[in-house]
Lab assay of single mutants.
Amino acid sequence: NLYFQGLKYMVPGARVTRGLDWKWRDQDGSPQGEGTVTGELHNGWIDVTWDAGGSNSYRMGAEGKFDLKLAP
Rank of each mutant, 00 (worst) to 15 (best):
residue 1 N to S: 12
residue 1 N to I: 12
residue 2 L to S: 14
residue 2 L to N: 15
residue 2 L to W: 10
residue 2 L to V: 14
residue 3 Y to F: 14
residue 3 Y to A: 14
residue 3 Y to D: 15
residue 4 F to N: 12
residue 4 F to L: 12
residue 4 F to A: 13
residue 4 F to Q: 13
residue 6 G to Q: 15
residue 6 G to P: 10
residue 6 G to W: 15
residue 7 L to G: 08
residue 7 L to H: 09
residue 8 K to Y: 10
residue 8 K to R: 10
residue 8 K to S: 12
residue 9 Y to Q: 10
residue 9 Y to T: 08
residue 10 M to N: 01
residue 10 M to P: 04
residue 11 V to N: 07
residue 11 V to H: 09
residue 11 V to R: 10
residue 13 G to C: 09
residue 14 A to P: 02
residue 14 A to G: 04
residue 14 A to I: 08
residue 15 R to A: 01
residue 16 V to N: 00
residue 16 V to L: 01
residue 17 T to F: 06
residue 18 R to F: 08
residue 18 R to L: 09
residue 18 R to Q: 07
residue 19 G to E: 03
residue 19 G to D: 04
residue 19 G to S: 06
residue 19 G to R: 06
residue 19 G to I: 06
residue 19 G to P: 03
residue 20 L to H: 14
residue 20 L to F: 11
residue 21 D to V: 04
residue 23 K to D: 11
residue 24 W to C: 07
residue 25 R to L: 15
residue 25 R to S: 15
residue 26 D to M: 07
residue 26 D to Y: 07
residue 27 Q to Y: 04
residue 27 Q to E: 12
residue 27 Q to V: 06
residue 28 D to Y: 03
residue 29 G to N: 05
residue 29 G to V: 05
residue 29 G to I: 05
residue 30 S to N: 14
residue 30 S to H: 14
residue 31 P to S: 08
residue 31 P to N: 09
residue 32 Q to A: 15
residue 32 Q to L: 10
residue 32 Q to P: 15
residue 33 G to N: 06
residue 33 G to I: 04
residue 34 E to S: 13
residue 34 E to Q: 12
residue 34 E to A: 13
residue 35 G to R: 04
residue 35 G to C: 01
residue 35 G to F: 04
residue 36 T to V: 11
residue 36 T to I: 09
residue 37 V to H: 04
residue 38 T to Y: 07
residue 38 T to S: 11
residue 38 T to N: 08
residue 38 T to P: 00
residue 38 T to Q: 08
residue 39 G to D: 07
residue 40 E to M: 12
residue 41 L to D: 03
residue 42 H to R: 14
residue 42 H to N: 12
residue 43 N to Q: 11
residue 43 N to M: 12
residue 44 G to Q: 02
residue 44 G to T: 01
residue 45 W to D: 00
residue 45 W to M: 06
residue 45 W to V: 02
residue 45 W to K: 02
residue 45 W to T: 00
residue 46 I to F: 01
residue 46 I to Q: 01
residue 46 I to V: 11
residue 47 D to M: 14
residue 47 D to T: 15
residue 47 D to W: 14
residue 47 D to F: 13
residue 48 V to T: 00
residue 48 V to M: 00
residue 48 V to C: 02
residue 49 T to N: 09
residue 49 T to D: 09
residue 50 W to D: 00
residue 50 W to K: 00
residue 51 D to T: 01
residue 51 D to R: 03
residue 52 A to D: 08
residue 52 A to I: 06
residue 54 G to Q: 11
residue 54 G to E: 10
residue 54 G to D: 08
residue 55 S to C: 14
residue 55 S to M: 13
residue 55 S to H: 12
residue 56 N to Q: 08
residue 57 S to N: 09
residue 57 S to C: 15
residue 57 S to T: 12
residue 58 Y to K: 00
residue 58 Y to R: 00
residue 58 Y to E: 02
residue 59 R to N: 01
residue 59 R to T: 01
residue 60 M to V: 08
residue 60 M to Q: 01
residue 61 G to A: 00
residue 62 A to M: 05
residue 62 A to V: 06
residue 63 E to K: 09
residue 64 G to Y: 07
residue 64 G to N: 10
residue 64 G to D: 09
residue 65 K to R: 09
residue 65 K to T: 03
residue 66 F to K: 04
residue 67 D to A: 02
residue 69 K to P: 00
residue 69 K to H: 09
residue 70 L to E: 05
residue 70 L to Q: 07
residue 71 A to K: 09
residue 72 P to A: 13
residue 72 P to H: 13
